[in-house]
Amino acid sequence: MNKKLNAKDFILIGVLTALMWIICMIISTIMSVAGPVTNVFYPAVAAIPCGVVMMLLLAKVPKKGVLAISAAIQGILFLLVGGFWTIPIALIIGGLLCDFAIMGRGDISMRSMAVAYSIWNGIFSIGAIVIPMRFLQSAFVGAMEKNNIAPEYIQGMIHITSGFMPVVIIIAGLIGGLLGGYIGQKALKKHFVKAGLVSAK
């Protein structure tokens, strides 16, 4: 089997990454508006529908580098819409790590896909929530205060990320990734394998 990525694979990566990013943006906007408690768990929730897309992408193109390219492009998009600068860095590092360290050896199986996606999602929630709120808290809170965000919301954000909550957030990210991977693979078997579009191992 040809292991090198060709133009068709690149096009599929582009199309599906666009879809994943749109879903992620919609969910993150809704959840950050809904309140501070839901805001910190948005990577976990966004991972569930995105998992379906990612599983299809990885099953359709079972080659090395797909997750890394997809992650890098999502990072570039977050940079373009003015996301906090830790998000793109976390996405790109996570993508490289998961692609080459976790799915690195041998063929890509369904299980390694789900595990890699879950860990990538955990790294995403570190970059999106934990680093800004824990290690860059003064800068982040200062920006929010000057932006006229209601003080109750900021207090809620500080409260929800204090103590050992960052661990819970990361674990939630990992579980969200696993759940997304599981649902994605079920949807894959139900719809795509039967239709002969994807062969699942």
């Binding site: 133009a7 690149f10 096009i11 582009g14 990454t17 390219i69 997809s70 890098a72 492009i73």
Partner: peptide, 11 residues
């Protein structure tokens, strides 16, 4: 590299 240009443009 092509691996970045093609997906970006398509997206």
């Amino acid at each position: 590299p092509q691996s970045v240009t093609i997906p970006l443009v398509v997206m």
